[in-house]
């Protein structure tokens, strides 16, 4: 992915979160603190609206005392990092072989129809972004999608209706325990 230059007003970690960040950095040997970069980027995404602006990446570079380019290099390599704003909830639907075998194509079509937006797009109300993803390690429980820290597995049309209704009402839908 190439670097998208999207700006956002600079935000900073809360004092509490900063303590967490510093503790993380302290886990690594002297001079090897760059190892904490990826974890801090995940935290920044979580705290600053689900994506990384240039300001955020520069801020992380300052915290780690590394060049901004070192942060850009990493943020553009790893596909989990969003470099542009997304909807409130991002649905990443797996479409690789094993999920395809159990109907992920149908799930993708149904989601696009139901949310009236194509894969890659965001609903007009800014609630949902749809994306396709490659194998997420849930192949035996497909079709599936990931939303934040939650995996939604064994998807059917009815289940998708439930999940969407739940997110709309601000509740993260629970998964059935295996």
């Amino acid at each position: 992915m190439s670097l998208k230059i999207i700006h956002q007003e600079r935000q900073e970690f809360s004092a509490e979160r900063m303590a967490e960040v510093q503790a993380l950095i302290a886990q690594y040997p002297e001079g090897k603190h760059k190892s904490a970069l990826m974890r801090i980027l995940h935290m920044a995404e979580e705290d600053f609206g689900g994506w990384l602006s240039v300001e955020t990446m520069n801020y992380v570079a300052e915290i780690l005392n590394i060049q901004a380019i070192e942060v850009y290099e990493v943020a553009t390599f790893y596909t989990m990092f969003n470099l542009e704003p997304t909807g409130k909830y991002v649905f990443e639907v797996c479409r690789t072989g094993p999920c395809m075998l159990v109907g992920s194509d149908n799930i993708i079509a149904y989601l696009e129809e139901k949310l009236e937006v194509k894969m890659g797009g965001t609903t007009a109300d800014g609630m949902f972004t749809l994306k396709t993803a490659e194998c997420l390690g849930a192949c035996g429980y497909g079709p599936m999608l990931q939303c934040g820290k939650q995996y939604h597995e064994h998807l059917t049309k009815d289940r998708i209706d439930e999940i969407i209704a739940s997110y709309r009402s601000g509740v993260v839908p629970k998964e059935i325990a295996r």
Binding site: S35, R39, H42, E134
Partner: peptide, 12 residues
């Protein structure tokens, strides 16, 4: 022994 966990970022 110190044991730590580090996350990746979505790269096979």
């Amino acid at each position: 022994l110190d044991l730590r966990v580090a996350p990746g970022g979505g790269a096979y």
